[in-house]
Design a protein around this nucleic acid. Structure first.
Lengths: 135, 135
DNA sequence: CTTGACTCCGTACCTAAGTACGGATTCAAG
DNA sequence: CTTGAATCCGTACTTAGGTACGGAGTCAAG
């Protein structure tokens, strides 16, 4: 493993964070990452804190937060404004539960259709097609 | 209500189907609707079958089918190829169940985080922020 | 025959979260 | 000092499902 005494250049940084170089640049434009210092020239150098930040973003994404919402979470990064973080998490939980309700409804309709379809072998009109015509 | 003896022009058709005029033209480009006849001039005229078709598309969308998948369903529109329709419905059911699994996992994590957050009033480090840093 | 509403058509724009490209620098090794 | 890799930067493209725009043509009523 190579040493990067002045901090990681973008390629090594992206690899360390498990994302694409272009993704780093994209996050930079979205201000999800601070503009890093550019020691000796015009090349950006990143540190461990930046790697942690990208991983934070990816963790939050896995919980369904959008990048915009994650920008909000990142302003609470010092961990001292628990109330605000809880509000964001509660709102997201509501979103997720609403989507769950939708999907459960859809699942039951689809399951019924598949079921009725199986039960109606030889019928002239497919129950699935008929149901889609019915509403 | 006005009569449209030669069939509905696009505006009345879109209204009857409950969608935007632009949506009709978009569906036309996607070949979800057949090119309608243009009697006497260059104006498209639509019939009841077209209205039913748009409603079919909207029903299928509510069940989570993409327009591309709906194009597939529409080729089975005569209702005689029940097996093929069932396969498409089963695949969609699998999709929906996979998404449900994801969301349930997310819900439980979020619910735990909110819970722990509530339990830790006064703590210095917010458990939500800490958890996002942990993975 | 004119006016106003409607339609036609192609094209651009929108969101989200990136990905891809390409010319110009710059860095590091030999 | 040269060469090749990496970086910089702006811009365009991607998917899905539309929405919006604008100029030209057409249709029906008065």
């Amino acid at each position: 493993m190579k040493k990067h005494p002045r901090g990681l250049p973008i390629g090594a940084f992206a690899a360390a964070a498990g994302v694409n170089v272009e993704t780093i640049r994209f996050y930079q434009r979205k201000a999800l990452l601070p503009e890093p210092g550019r020691s000796y020239g015009s090349i950006r150098r990143y540190g461990e804190a930046d790697v942690a930040r990208v991983k934070f973003v990816k963790s939050a994404q896995r919980l369904g937060f959008s990048l915009q919402e994650i920008a909000g979470l990142l302003t609470l990064d010092d961990g001292t404004r628990c109330d605000e973080a809880r509000v964001l998490a509660e709102e997201k939980l509501e979103d997720v539960r609403a989507k769950l309700d939708d999907l459960r409804r859809i699942e039951s309709v689809l399951a019924q259709l598949v079921d009725r379809c199986c039960a109606s072998r030889g019928r002239i009109t497919c129950p699935i097609i008929a149901a889609l015509h019915a509403h």
